[in-house]
Simulated scan of single mutants.
Amino acid sequence: MSHTAHIPSHRKPRRSASKLAVRAGVAGGVLSTLAMAGTASASPSAEPVAETTLEMPVLNLDLGADVSSAVTVAAENTRLAAVEGELTAQEESARTGAAAEAKQAKEEAQKKADAEKAEKTAKAEADRKAEAERSSRSSGSERTTLKSAAAPQGSGTVSAPATGSAAAIVNFARAQVGKAYVMGGTGPSSFDCSGLVQAAYRQAGISLPRMSQAQSSAGTSVSLSALQPGDILYWGSKGSAYHVAIYVGGGKFVGAQNPSTGIVERNLSYDKPTGAVRVL
């Protein structure tokens, strides 16, 4: 017996042939796979490994054109807004101006109407007073004719027929006798006192003021004892007379007296005037 026989062997026990074959196959497969991978990586024609890439959406826009268009639109909107604001301001100004003009016109019309009303009222009152005074006088009162005034020869009223411009005035005035008295009337169918005088003088080509107050200041003052046909007679104060008429000669006058009598021819004694003026 060997002296080493009692020492156990250090060699591993042999594996069976079948297990060795399996292990050899596995190792061979691994080596084959590694070889193929190395060949693939070394080959220049090998396709690159695909990488996952996130693609951003492509904006197919012309940003410069869009910005320019937006600026143009904004500028146009601003211009239109400015124009609209200016038109609105002009319309408001026009409305304000029209309202002011309308108000002023209304005020002026009202003033004119008030003045005319006041004038008509004053004239009507004066006519009423004059008529009341005439009515209160009795037939045997203090009325006197111009002839009974005991005026010196040659200084009395003129009884000779009127001629020239005076004749035109007198004839027109007498032709209106019997027509109606209408306040504010200037003919041809009706007159008030100053309207009749104005129309009569127009026949002689003479323009007189419209109102009795102004007519009583026309021409030069004459004495009632030296009247001539065509002279203007007035009642009340000179420059503020409330009634006028036309002296037609023979101690008579023609005048538009009042609505109840109309246009009449009367003796001076019927209603003696305050004074007279001569325009001819």
Rank of each mutant, 00 (worst) to 15 (best):
S68H: 07
G262R: 13
R14S: 13
A204H: 03
A94N: 07
G195H: 05
A24D: 13
G156D: 03
D114Q: 15
V58Q: 07
Q228R: 14
S155W: 10
A65T: 05
G156M: 01
E86L: 08
E47I: 02
M183C: 02
L227A: 11
V254T: 03
V170N: 14
R202I: 00
Q90F: 00
P161I: 11
A226N: 12
E55Y: 00
G239H: 00
D66G: 03
K103S: 15
S155V: 03
S217G: 13
Q110W: 05
A99P: 06
I246H: 06
S18Y: 08
R11Y: 08
T220K: 14
V248Y: 04
E119F: 11
A75E: 06
A151Q: 04
A35W: 01
A245E: 01
A105S: 13
V30E: 09
G187C: 07
S194R: 06
L34R: 05
K147V: 08
K123I: 11
S221M: 01
G64P: 04
R14C: 08
S155I: 02
A75L: 08
A151Y: 03
P188W: 05
G195I: 02
S139F: 10
G184M: 00
Q228P: 04
Q198Y: 01
E265A: 08
K112C: 04
L146S: 12
K103T: 13
R134N: 11
L227F: 11
L280P: 00
S269K: 08
E101L: 15
G154L: 05
S68M: 06
L146Q: 04
E47R: 11
S18E: 15
V22N: 12
P8W: 03
P188R: 10
T186C: 00
T72I: 00
R278K: 01
C193H: 07
Q153W: 06
D127R: 12
V248F: 03
G230E: 12
A200V: 01
A81G: 09
A256V: 00
P209S: 04
A151T: 14
G28E: 10
A102I: 10
V197W: 06
V49M: 12
K129A: 12
L208H: 05
V264A: 14
Q203T: 11
V71W: 03
V244A: 02
A81H: 00
A98F: 14
A24I: 10
A109V: 01
L280C: 02
T261I: 03
S93F: 04
Q198W: 04
A175M: 08
